[in-house]
Simulated assay, not measured.
Amino acid sequence: MTNQILSVEELKSLNVRSNRQGLLRLTLHLGVMTIAGYLWATNLTGDRWYIAIPSLAIYGFSLAIMFAPLHESSHRTAFANNHLSDAIAWLAGLLSFYNSSFYRLYHKWHHRYAQIPDKDPELSDPPPANLGEYLLQISGIPWWIGKVQTHGRVALGKLEGYPFIPEAQREEVIRSTRLQLLVYIAAIAISIAFRQPWFLLYWLLPLAVGQPFLRFLLMAEHMGCTKDDNSLTNTRTTLTFPPLRYFIWNIPFHAEHHLYPSIPFYMLPVAHEKLRSHFVHVDSGYVNVNLEIVKHLNAQEPVAV
């Protein structure tokens, strides 16, 4: 079996969760977000657009890529403490417009049935068939529409069509989603009360700006890979420059993660060195991968979101 490449001893040495590593990565992430957000807030008026625009892009990307700690914490590999993982997952989902309770169950099915038609929930949307559809997905517009619809349905208790949510966890998912929406409503109410566009300027607009960057990264994870249950061929690892890889919690090592989802994010580079020769899709650069996707759109699979 493909998931038995590493020995028990090797896997045990890699499966070491760490509060320290998780908190260091989270501190860096929130630090970049805070600095970029401050620069955006203090330069969005006036003539210093050359500071405001890059700051908005970085701030927006840092919001969108809170998906990364959400993802790791949903696996409970970001930290050694499960309660800490759950708390950070919820916060990260709040900032990135995901719901952690819903996402954990959704993502569990994605791992169980990765790239298997009619089972993997990430294959529920059709793939882009042309450049226009590709650009539409990169824009994040379908993602926004899907998130608004899903959050609304779940908050109303309409869980039909979500077979990955077991009966025993329905109330938790509904409650978590309602609480998240209440936070957004409170933030909007505060903005209105003070007659300030805070919600728009410091969350909605930046996240909208950051989403295309995240879509660009996630597009590479499974597009163009095999549509079957072979973990060595149905997922891609994308090699990128270390600072970006570090900031996005090593999500480029996606094939390694799918093969061994128990390995914490900070150990994935080590796992990569042991496993890279076994994977079919180990490609260099997100730009190169996306250019190849555009070249062969008619043969591609749906984007992983």
Rank of each mutant, 00 (worst) to 15 (best):
N3H: 14
L6P: 09
V16D: 10
R17Q: 15
Q21N: 15
G22F: 14
L23M: 13
R25V: 04
H29Q: 14
L30G: 12
G31E: 11
M33V: 09
A36P: 01
T42G: 10
N43V: 04
N43Q: 09
D47S: 15
Y50P: 07
Y50W: 15
Y50N: 12
P54H: 07
P54Y: 08
P54I: 03
S55T: 03
A57F: 14
I58L: 14
F61Q: 11
I65P: 02
F67S: 08
A68P: 08
P69K: 09
E72H: 04
S73R: 09
H75V: 12
H75G: 11
A80P: 03
L84I: 13
W90R: 15
G93E: 07
G93M: 08
L94W: 13
S100E: 06
S101Q: 10
R104L: 00
Y106A: 00
H107G: 02
H111S: 01
Y113P: 04
A114H: 15
I116C: 01
D120A: 00
L123T: 08
P127V: 05
P128Y: 03
G132V: 03
E133M: 11
S139N: 03
W143P: 01
W143S: 01
H151V: 06
G157T: 05
K158Y: 01
G161H: 07
G161Q: 06
Y162M: 15
Q169M: 11
R170G: 02
R170E: 11
R170L: 05
E172Y: 11
R175T: 13
T177P: 00
A186E: 06
A186V: 14
I192L: 10
I192V: 13
A193M: 04
Q196M: 08
Q196V: 11
F199L: 01
L205S: 02
A208T: 15
P212F: 08
L217D: 09
L217M: 14
A220C: 10
E221T: 04
M223A: 02
D228H: 05
D229M: 05
N230A: 00
T240I: 13
L244N: 08
F247D: 02
F247G: 08
Y260K: 07
L268H: 09
H272L: 07
K274T: 07
V280I: 13
V280D: 15
S284L: 14
S284M: 13
Y286A: 06
V287I: 13
V289A: 08
I293D: 03
V294F: 10
K295F: 04
L297I: 06
P302K: 03
V303S: 03
